[in-house]
Design a protein around this nucleic acid. Structure first.
Lengths: 132, 132
DNA sequence: GCTTGACCTGGAGCGCACTCCAGCTTCTAC
DNA sequence: GTAGAAGCTGGAGTGCGCTCCAGGTCAAGC
């Protein structure tokens, strides 16, 4: 299967401009071209894009994604370094999750507080109503 | 207790420039000034900064932090809207955590794959050694 | 009273990750 | 054979969240 840039954009969730941008900066290999010179993405291209979006979602800077992409081109010999890159990144992601969860607890606390305030205010207006 | 801007920066984890920037854009109230016209942060100021950094850590855009800050000034009457803001934000944060966890699973998978490759390569070089 | 260092202001600059644009080509459908 | 949609390129522009700078003030220690 091959895909036009519009289809690749839809499937990857990236914009057409972003796809071309990623190609320009060396994050993705230039895809095949059709007879009219238009980009024609393969399933393999899409898999790589999908993985890239995971890295992006987890906040990997483009600089590192590019490094990973370049290592891929050098074949099996670089597997160790690629693994290390992902390993380090995983550590970051875990830390980020922990951080978010800690903040979540604070949000919970604040929200509960506001709920209490609302309950109290509702109670008071009830008292007003009853005493009126 | 009062704190110089350098102390406030250290305690909040923000830079001095960021503290002044937050003040400029209305995220924090202008703190008191000492006799020489220098900023003098109170414990209350620091608490607010601490909370702001939680919102920032969880990715709340400055626009919304500012909205929250402005609501605070209007007193209890805005408690409901502030709660709603935090509530919506909590939903975002939870979703973000779920997203990160899904990506984490993929990273785990990839890393395991690389470990397998390494094990296989090590095995092969062992075979080479033995057969040499 | 002079140096040093922290702090002040207004405004410019920066890095990141896109996003948009002008002007052109190419395919498709009528 | 022509209109319209989709795609092409190189390059400029954008939004966010800071970060840095020049030129000045102020207080403390020597």
């Amino acid at each position: 299967m091959t895909y036009s840039i519009a289809q690749a954009a839809e499937r990857s969730g990236l914009s057409i401009d972003t796809l071309r941008y990623y190609e320009r900066i060396g994050l993705v290999d230039p895809p095949a071209r059709d007879s009219g010179g238009r980009r024609s993405y393969s399933d393999e291209d899409l898999s790589w894009l999908e993985f890239l979006t995971k890295l992006r979602t987890t906040g990997m800077p483009i600089r590192l994604m590019r490094e990973y992409a370049q290592l891929r081109h050098k074949g099996l010999a670089t597997a160790g370094r690629r693994k290390q890159l992902l390993y380090d990144h995983r550590t970051d992601v875990r830390q980020r999750i922990a951080e978010l969860q800690a903040c979540l607890a604070i949000l919970d606390y604040k929200i509960t507080n506001y709920a209490d305030i609302e309950a109290k205010m509702a109670g008071e207006s009830l008292v007003q109503e009853v005493s009126a």
